[in-house]
Design a protein around this nucleic acid. Structure first.
Length: 193
DNA sequence: CAGAAGATCATCT
DNA sequence: GATGATCTTCTGT
């Protein structure tokens, strides 16, 4: 195993890759709203770009909860962004969910995004192709911070060997030299950057 | 206490 | 490609 592969085997980086292809949804009034994760981003504790890098604060406290919790933060004062905590209590690592392919609850997602559905069955890519957009579409805000997976928000791993489909590595953290962003090959629902 | 920066997005050119 | 919206945290005085 070369050095690059060893770095990729870090748990949070591995989880970021595995989460591509997984199904993510919330339930509202007994209805499912969500879709397939097509882009993720890993934030390790030693990454200066991670909110957890300088220790625990009021905002990032959820990152230090055990794996299986979610961390929701306000971005640029306007948007909400959803993370899945990926390490043991006190460590402070998470994976940002950057984009999903919408599968369930399309009318609700269009409504929350303020987008009118196109004529026909085609889903517009800009519905959920960014971390702020998918939170707006799902209706996830700060009140969801510190919630547990299974408590109104659900995550189901992709069947088969989804990690093989996931990729390619589309970014490398300048600070840590770690690959950190992962996309589903060929997805129309990933962000542009 | 003031100011800057930031894991973003829509709108404009 | 540039800009503004608007909130939290961090840094400097």
């Amino acid at each position: 195993m070369d050095a690059w592969t060893q770095r990729e085997e870090r748990p949070t980086v591995r989880r970021a890759r595995e989460l591509v292809g997984a199904r993510l949804w919330i339930t509202v009034d007994g209805e499912r709203r969500g879709g397939r994760i097509v882009e993720t981003e890993a934030y390790c504790a030693d990454d200066p770009a991670s909110h957890s890098y300088r220790g625990e604060t009021r905002r990032n406290g959820a990152m230090f909860l055990p794996e299986g919790h979610i961390y929701v933060y306000r971005s640029y004062g306007i948007h909400w962004c959803l993370n899945v905590v990926t390490a043991a209590a006190g460590v402070g690592e998470a994976v940002l969910i950057r984009a999903i392919e919408p599968l369930w609850g399309l009318p609700g997602m269009y409504r929350r995004r303020g987008i009118h559905p196109p004529v026909g069955a085609v889903v517009v890519p800009r519905l959920t192709n960014g971390p702020g957009k998918l939170c707006q579409a799902l209706g996830i805000d700060g009140s969801w911070d510190r919630r547990r997976i299974g408590d109104g928000i659900y995550l189901e791993p992709a069947a088969g060997a989804p990690s093989v489909e996931a990729g390619p590595r589309v970014g490398i953290s300048v600070a840590t030299d770690l690959p950190w962003r992962f996309r589903l090959v060929g997805s129309r629902f990933t962000g542009r950057r």
